[in-house]
Simulated assay, not measured.
Amino acid sequence: MADRLDTPKEARRTLWRRPRLDQDAVGKATEAIARFLGTPRFLIWLTVFCAIWLAWNSLGPPALRFDKAENGFTALTLMLSLQASYAAPLILLAQNRQDDRDRVTAEQDRQRAERNLADTEYLAREMAALRLALSEVATRDFVRSEIRNLLEGLEDLEVQRATAPESTPAPAQPSPGTSPAP
């Protein structure tokens, strides 16, 4: 029977177990190495290493030299090539992880900006509604001006009563319990 594509494959038994690596731990290690490869400390150590290598194999005792200058320091060239062949993929792996983090950060920033815009629009609508509502409600300044106008009106009325001749009788106040005459 042919294998179906909608079901997972059965686990096969092998002689050697595949190592299970924590991808995050491997990523952190590669980032640490890539970060170190880009530092002045690494360049200084590499320069010191190459200088010692070249000095030993050029000036050291001929019997103890292991990389001949006549051969163009082949072992040093191979070691530097090996270091470069490992450095390039490690740096690319670290850059990919950084790109993934940047992508997540950009998405979170975009979502945060959308929420801020929605909040700002909501607050603007609420403020507009409050302004409309306040134009229909008496404000403190409006109430003060109305009270001031009433006080001025009362003062004018008192002044008129004080200066008015006594000959005009004041209207009679009806006594309580009686109705005014028609």
Rank of each mutant, 00 (worst) to 15 (best):
R112L: 11
A88S: 12
E107F: 01
A129R: 14
T120R: 05
A129I: 13
Q108W: 12
A129Y: 07
L78N: 01
L80W: 02
D119I: 13
A84T: 08
A118N: 00
L92E: 07
R110C: 04
E136W: 02
E121H: 11
L132H: 12
L93H: 03
L123S: 06
R97L: 09
R112H: 02
L130S: 03
D119L: 07
M127Q: 13
L78V: 15
R103N: 10
E126I: 10
I91A: 14
Q95K: 11
A129D: 10
R110Q: 14
E126R: 15
L90D: 07
L82T: 10
S81H: 11
Y122C: 15
S81D: 10
L78I: 10
E136Y: 09
Y86D: 10
L92T: 14
R110I: 14
A113F: 00
S81A: 07
L92I: 11
R101Q: 08
A88K: 07
L76S: 05
R97H: 08
E136R: 11
V104P: 01
T77I: 05
L93R: 00
L78G: 08
Q98M: 05
D100I: 06
E136D: 05
D109C: 03
T105H: 03
E114Q: 05
L123R: 11
L92P: 01
S81V: 14
A84M: 06
I91C: 05
L93N: 08
M127T: 11
R97M: 08
E107C: 03
Q108R: 14
R115Y: 07
A84V: 14
Q95C: 14
A118W: 00
A124L: 15
E107V: 08
S85M: 14
E121C: 12
R131P: 00
S135G: 06
A88R: 02
L117M: 08
M79H: 01
Q108V: 15
L134V: 12
D102F: 04
E126Y: 09
T120N: 10
A84Y: 06
N116R: 03
P89S: 15
D119A: 15
A124T: 13
Q108F: 11
T120D: 11
A124E: 07
Y86M: 09
A113P: 04
A87Y: 02
Q83Y: 07
T120E: 07
L123K: 09
R125L: 03
Y86C: 09
N96L: 15
R112G: 12
L93A: 13
A75G: 00
R112S: 15
P89K: 13
A84H: 04
A94H: 00
L117F: 07
R97W: 01
R131F: 04
L78Y: 01
A113M: 02
S85I: 13
T77F: 01
A133E: 15
E107L: 06
R103L: 12
A88P: 01
T120M: 02
D102I: 06
A118D: 00
L82G: 04
E107N: 05
T105G: 03
M127L: 12
R110E: 15
E107H: 03
A87K: 09
T120V: 08
L78D: 00
L78R: 02
M127C: 09
V104C: 04
A118M: 03
E107M: 07
P89Y: 05
T120K: 01
A106D: 14
R115W: 02
L78H: 03
L117D: 15
A106Q: 15
R125H: 10
P89C: 11
A106R: 10
L80H: 06
A84R: 08
